[in-house]
Nucleic acid binder design. Structure first.
Lengths: 203, 203
DNA sequence: GTCTATAGCGCGATAGAC
DNA sequence: GTCTATCGCGCTATAGAC
């Protein structure tokens, strides 16, 4: 425990390097040699600590997905927080996390495409969303609307996550620098809840 | 010309197969052997018609990106169409196209991450967006808002594209079947413009 | 635990017969 | 144009010295 925190163990160095290389290139394009080099050590150690490239990848991926769970844990089912404030908290937490890990959503979504259920099953979040108090609140707020309330859940996620997924395009097409992009994203922490509220009231 | 349309040439068969395999697996995970098999022919023919895997990929990718351009060509700069109607047309065209090619956005965005400018440069759409009449209209509509009007361009794209990017997750977490998903998406053809309008007016 | 060296194999690409 | 057979490389994984 204390020892690990002191010397940042070899195992942790490898994981750090793997996180970086996998996130940048995806599973198939990433090479174990890249990861070893990034970690400043030999290739053979990767297979000593983790049995294979695939096992290392799974560990990283699970941890990445957990970041999405952790960021809203404790918020979703807090029954004393009204919807608008809840959306504000969710946006704020997610955007802060995504500014630090901007490649995360695109990485997760593109790697999930190949085998969606293998990884999701292992997390046990299958019905999680629909059972949450948050989803009940959306339903309640959208009940005077004639459309499926799932749309508003999708829209909220879209406003929070999409800019990060599309950032390579935005930056290139719009000629936006990294710090401008970050500034724009931080502005959205307050705006998303306002926009969601407006959509819920729209007619 | 006429000949090609009649027999659906070998070259076209390969491109069709490549489109499918690349879109499903991404460049690195796709194998030329898969493409050849999918096209019902031998691996050697791939290199006879296209010099290499990379050249074949580039051709497919360019065509894919073109689909996004084609879907809004003629709309963006039509000065006689008011903003709300323009957003309706854009949503409608894009959603129709995306229902037919649901994997397209995730494919393009994840492959673009590696080399953003190499492919975009070849298309000459660099300043395209900001010069468009559509963008001027957004600016005009958002001028009483205190925030960067770029947000509203991002939001519109988010509402249209994000559900398709996140569909593997939505389907798994939300237990949504393919035809339910398609039905939901088609509903959005009319809704997006309404929502964008509401966000523009929000305070 | 960490290294070097290499096994073993799957990949993209090509030579050459038809 | 289309096939079979094969080259040669680069990858993951492992054996074995230290």
């Amino acid at each position: 425990m204390a020892k690990k925190e002191l010397d940042l163990s070899t195992e942790e160095k490898i994981k750090e390097a793997a996180r970086k290389v996998f996130t940048e290139k995806g599973f198939s394009a990433a090479r174990t040699r890249d990861i070893a080099e990034e970690a400043g050590m030999n290739l053979a150690l990767l297979n000593y600590y983790f049995r294979s490239k695939e096992r290392l990848f799974d560990i990283i991926m699970i941890e990445n997905i957990q970041k999405f769970v952790v960021a809203v844990k404790g918020i979703l089912n807090n029954e004393s927080v009204p919807l608008k404030m809840k959306v504000e908290q969710i946006s704020s937490n997610y955007i802060d996390m995504l500014v630090l890990n901007p490649d995360l959503p695109l990485f997760i979504l593109s790697e999930l495409r190949a085998n969606p259920e293998r990884l999701i099953d292992r997390l046990g979040v299958k019905g999680f969303l629909f059972k949450s108090h948050y989803f009940k609140q959306i339903k309640e707020a959208a009940k005077n609307q004639e459309v499926n309330s799932l749309h508003f859940f999708i829209n909220t996620m879209a406003l929070i996550v999409f800019p990060f997924v599309a950032s390579p395009l935005l930056k290139t097409i719009g000629d936006i620098k990294q710090d401008e992009f970050t500034k724009l994203m931080l502005e959205r922490k307050k705006l998303v809840a306002k926009w969601v509220e407006a959509m819920l009231k729209a007619k």
